[in-house]
Amino acid sequence: MNVTTEELASLYVLDKLDPAQLRAFEARLQVDTDLLQLVRGLESALEDQIRALPQREPPGASFERIKSQIRPREPVPLKDKVVSIPWISLMGWGMAAILLLGLGLTFILTSERHPPASGSNPVVLVVGMDAQSNQWKTIPLASATDASESFAQLAVLAEELWKNPGHLPGYSNEPNPANTRSSGYTVFNPASKHGFIAIQQLPRPVAGKHYYLWVKDPFSNRLECAGLIPLQDADHGLYSFALSQDSEITSDRVVFFITEESSDDPTWTRPRGRPVLGTDHI
């Protein structure tokens, strides 16, 4: 780990990162096991410090006062919850998760829960990407009863486009102007801020580098990192991602692009590396 990463990890554990840094760091934690180990060590030290403070019991009536303030929830049997993927909080996502796994999709990156798509005319944004461009298309979305159903609709659409790429905006079977066959597409629900990104024929990043997915609102110029794409032994894949609930990207017309970033420069707030797919402008 380099000094920058260590500094970010220290500030993360001390809760001193600003919101953008925090989102980016947490997204990286989802996929970077070495970083997770580092953070766990620092958390352990912090916890020891707290437990080594002069200890005093709270007043005896405290718990009763707390109990009087909480709203009881209807108990739900644990067996109905899906918690088997440790780095993703799936509670509440039961059916969607089962559906996704059934579809054989790779389920990665962040997965925070979001409200279902709202508004009278919900849409899904489909963005076709090649090495130099983004092509947009919007598809009406049936109203979902809840977040799980909305997420499942998105997953089904993502897989449908995987099987039938001819339906993608700007689809071409020919090499693109940059003379590469690398291509991809994103399906993104602007209301729930969930999406899927598919990648085809993207060479693996060189050693010490990773591919990062970025989302940008070209009208406000707001930019956020949506996570790291863990291309492993394949040059293709279909991945889920989610912007955080407090994301400032609210437009229903955004662009997506992927850059190759150095592992030594994990600031996650601005792309610094080489763009490999998509573009940050219209």
Partner: peptide
């Protein structure tokens, strides 16, 4: 008291990948 009420309300959003429970 405020903290424990928040823990009750936010328990569902706890993500073990982001931090340990006590942290």
């Amino acid at each position: 008291q405020d903290t424990f009420v928040k823990l009750w309300n936010k328990a569902e959003s706890y993500d073990a990948r982001k931090s340990r429970p006590f942290t």
